[in-house]
Amino acid sequence: MTAAISIEALTKTYAARGQQVRAVDGLDLEIPQGGIFGFLGANGAGKTTTIRAIVGHMRATSGTIRVFDMPVPKHLPSIIDRVGALVEAPLFFPNFSGRKNLSLLARSRGFPQERVDSVLATVGLTDRAGSRFATYSLGMKQRLGVASVLLKDPDLLILDEPANGLDPPGILEMRKLMRDLSAQGKTVFVSSHILSEIEHTCDRVAIIARGKLVRTGSVQEILSTGTTSRYTVKVPGDSAVRDNAARSLLAAGWSVFADEHGEMLVDVAAERAHEITAHLANDGLWVSELAPVARTLEAAFLELTADAQGGAQ
């Protein structure tokens, strides 16, 4: 099966304040068909520039992009009905109602007008569909943007920061919507810098930093990336015993922290975790619990992008 999106050596530079800025730097990326693919990066990492290049809003300086195996932007017109995209802030005529905006878009492609009401219901905007877009809250604008994406019933949905402006129930609805769409066999390509959102939603992710791909793989693969893991270490006794244990580990060169509950945390490679118990036993301290702390995507992301971010600074 061909990839939904295939990007090879994508580079995009532009002039800003007299300087050449390389927003995307030789990016290679393949998004398979089906599932939810997360596109992670800090602000300014090149996510939106990449998406703009995919949907033809920007021209790549070099490199190639193929969507459903068709080079874009050249062949975008032939596959545009299969692609729906919400790029950054949703943009509509401010003085038209939400329904009018969607109705005009539907008309331009010959979609039935019933489809407009259907997608408005899907995003929960039926009640305010007759109101002017300018009067919408940020979350409602975002919903209308998603509705415009759904209008085409596309095979590939590209959502740039779709949770922007949504309240917690809205975020949950968005998460459910993406899963439903994925369950229908559609490909959802979602960019975000809210890592917990991606972690809870996506099947696969790609992490970019400073316009370059840092890592791509399933969420589990990304979470298991890295050389060290964090363990909770408990010793029986009062706080004085715990302090002794911490001092002993620190003196031996371990990285020791305390979590928000005062529990002792130690960073150590998984294959050396047993050495913690041996070390403390030598000091006459007995470990009652040695448990790995569940690693978050945030931790993995920060570790993976540390070099790039450092370079940036």
């Binding site: 033809g56 975008l76 545009i80 790029v87 509509f92 905006n101 878009l105 331009s108 492609r109």
Partner: peptide
């Protein structure tokens, strides 16, 4: 008016 508002969205329907 389009440039400040909906042209990007329109181009997603007619590129």
């Amino acid at each position: 008016a389009d440039f400040g508002t909906s042209i990007g969205t329109q181009l997603m329907f007619e590129p």
